[in-house]
Write a protein that binds this DNA or RNA. Structure first.
Lengths: 189, 189
DNA sequence: TCATGATAGTCAAGAATGTGAGTAATCAAG
DNA sequence: CTTGATTACTCACATTCTTGACTATCATGA
């Protein structure tokens, strides 16, 4: 009862195929939810069966045929209903945080390597989100767009994704600095 | 293969019962992972079977007896091994973000109510994390503690939790302001 | 020409997670 | 003296998620 609404929300703006949807979920463009491609195909099938979305076959010459989905009125109503239900607290599951939690018991170099990798990943995402935001607002300033734009939902969630990834990046860099500093301090004894 | 390491990492500092562990996971003190109580009991049983933790029965007069668990050497080795494996990207699943994504299609007042609730929740968590950080560092400054403290893992993850919840709070407030502003703008037509 | 990689999926099995109920004792408040 | 909250769990079912394997076609580069 959770992925369904994420998929519905993602299909509000454009007709997408399962494959395209999978891309955006997998790459984290839909930064408010995480899902694997296979889940999306399954969910799309279910959503169509429940008439919350409709699919249409698009025949392609150079590519395999695909099915594009869009939200139906029933789907919109379902989203409306969902919005009115109690919101569960957001949850994070992060392997890296588990590793940092154990920082004093595990190899520092290994940990720093993981943090470095995550920092780079987070940087890539902030760049991506920055570009996405720019594309969405076009020539307008952010304030202008948010005040008068016709579709601000994706912009707002992308803003959250941006600061989240900035937070990840800064935290990784900070943690690396701390660990390095302690290494240096301890080496002197 | 994921919850197990989170549990191991949480048990590094103190012997805990399943119930205590459940509390800390549920309240988000272990802010790097989210899990329900029942999952933890199951996982503790499994971890003990695999000899990564050991439990001891504590007989209590006024309360039901409990079992306290601590990490074994094999458990430490497992954490070490885990740290060296590739880190999966952190994932977020947030009902509220899904609702905001659909902002232009759902009732604004309903959405604002949810955002207000989340903002309050996030504020409560930042307060909690702030107190936890203070408890951990004691009389020392943060820089002092992070440089010379003996156990900094939980402090570092708590720092991430703090900025994450601050981010949530600010985003909620900002989003509310935007939505209110648009309401006012549109009311004029 | 051969191997990748991208597009566009499907299927099935098994692991992980979530939900709800049930047990049982003590303590504090009304 | 009864209700509700807290401590301390256990069991079982259902749903969800993950993993891996599989099918195709076309485009690109070596």
């Amino acid at each position: 009862m959770a992925l369904r609404h994420a998929v519905l929300a993602a299909l509000l703006d454009e007709e997408l195929s399962g494959y395209q949807l999978a891309k955006s979920f997998d790459l984290g463009v839909a930064n408010f939810w995480y899902a694997q491609p296979q889940q999306l195909y399954t969910e799309l099938t279910r959503l169509e069966k429940d008439a919350l979305i409709t699919g249409r076959e698009v025949v392609q010459d150079t590519r395999p045929n695909k099915r594009l989905f869009r939200v139906t009125d029933a789907g919109l109503a379902e989203l409306e209903r969902f919005t009115a239900t109690a919101t569960k607290p957001s949850f994070i599951r992060d392997d890296l945080a588990v590793k940092v939690q154990a920082a004093d018991y595990v190899d520092t170099e290994t940990l720093i390597a993981q943090l470095t990798e995550r920092a780079a990943f987070a940087r890539a995402k902030t760049d991506l989100f920055g570009r996405l935001l720019h594309t969405m607002r076009g020539e307008r300033t952010e304030a202008e767009f948010l005040r008068h734009g016709t579709r601000i939902g994706p912009y707002l969630t992308c803003l959250r994704g941006l600061t989240f990834e900035q937070g990840n990046h800064d935290w990784c860099e900070h943690t690396i600095a701390i660990l390095r500093d302690r290494q240096a301090t301890q080496a002197r004894h």
